[in-house]
Nucleic acid binder design. Structure first.
Lengths: 219, 219
DNA sequence: ATGTTCGATGAAAACTTGTTCACTGTCAAG
DNA sequence: CTTGACAGTGAACAAGTTTTCATCGAACAT
């Protein structure tokens, strides 16, 4: 790739910025005005150069019609990245943070260490009205992969009465597990969403800690 | 918003597709040819209607110069993230305790307890240190479906300096959009993760609102 | 010295494009 | 039946825009 002169680079950048801002290309006269050329032909020459150097494609005869050929390496211009934080239109929630608190009482996990984090996560309005706290749990294992809940994900568990088909956090042998709740008549089963595991786990006594309503994944 | 007629919709879609494919707007005569109108004035009337109905903005006197006014519903040209104030469907943040791991499979005793290090919690350690102003955004649209971020999901956006490959919330034409950040040399592009959309969106000046670190899905 | 390239001027030509005007046909509401 | 809104034809105009032509000066290598 042939090297661009400073002015060519500036013109190219201006054109990109113009498209980015206005969603249509500048005319040659727009560029002329921007760079205070006395003649449109000055711009014309630069555009020819840009095309010859392969970074811009002109559509002959058409007005405000160009294509950018993505540059790969070796150009000197820096793309400016400003960090601005959430804008007025899009901000939903602030202060997602950890409080460094301890899980007390419910739920009761033997496995957990003493120091736990807490965070703020979005909850459904139903659980907001009821006072009881929802909680987040990190998933370990792969028994729910067919429901797209994988090892390392975090599920948000909310209190409530589970229906048939809900994914619940349930106590089995002193361990909290994540399973789908299946009701057949008066009997209740837990089902792992993984073809490699036994379909149904009969349970005589079942302690439901809550219903998994959301799953949170690291990108 | 007034309803569009079939032809108006078709013309608008064609214009969008044309921009998407060629990166510049079609002329009135391009549209005329596409729809086999005998007169340019037929197109002219439709464009006036589209502008009157508020979905298209024409730049008077300028050739091939338009702006699309984003439609709230049914618009698939861009992933639009907006906060829809606290309604019944609204999401609110409440205190949720991060209570430790949960086994989604059979109990796994090989893993030691107390392994909850910083990498396993939903927020990055850097942002935890300096009281981050992370925020949640509800995703609308389908420009990121190939990254498994779909309409209705909620993404947690954290401040920071984005790296190549990060999914960022960026301001484009005053709207917050979700795109993957691509760095080629010193140039930066935004990429929609949807095969139906143009690969790269060149940007010379970029406003990053944050990095999408987590995605939250309703089960 | 001489030729060549580059960046620029100034004007004009040639083409593209948006816009206007006058007129026609259709269709539904009043 | 009339009216008005809508969609379209056909032609022409005016402005926008690209493109060409002729010319100039400075930098630079031959």
């Amino acid at each position: 790739m042939e090297e661009l002169t400073k002015k060519q680079r500036a013109i190219l950048d201006y054109m990109k910025a113009h498209v980015s801002e206005h969603s249509y290309w500048p005319s040659i006269r727009d560029i002329q005005a921007k760079f205070r050329f006395a003649s449109t032909n000055a711009v014309f020459g630069h555009l020819q150069a840009l095309e010859r150097k392969g970074v811009l494609q002109r559509i002959p005869g058409a007005a405000r019609a160009y294509k950018i050929v993505p540059e790969v390496l070796g150009d000197t211009s820096e793309t400016v990245i400003r960090y601005e934080g959430p804008g007025d239109d899009a901000i939903a929630f602030e202060n997602v943070k950890f409080a460094g608190s301890i899980a007390a009482g419910f739920p009761d996990y033997t496995e957990s260490s003493g120091v736990l984090d807490s965070m703020q996560v979005p909850l459904s309005p139903s659980s907001r009205r009821r006072a009881p706290e929802a909680f987040a749990l990190r998933v370990r294992g792969d028994s729910m992969i067919d429901a797209d809940i994988n090892d390392g994900d975090t599920v948000i568990v909310e209190p409530g009465t589970p229906k048939h088909g809900d994914i619940v956090a349930a106590l089995i042998d002193g361990e909290t597990t994540l399973k789908r709740l299946i009701k057949q008549g008066s009997k209740v089963y837990l089902k792992a969403e993984n073809q490699n595991y036994p379909d149904l786990i009969p349970t005589s006594s079942l302690t439901i800690q809550g219903i998994a309503k959301s799953v949170m994944k690291r990108i």
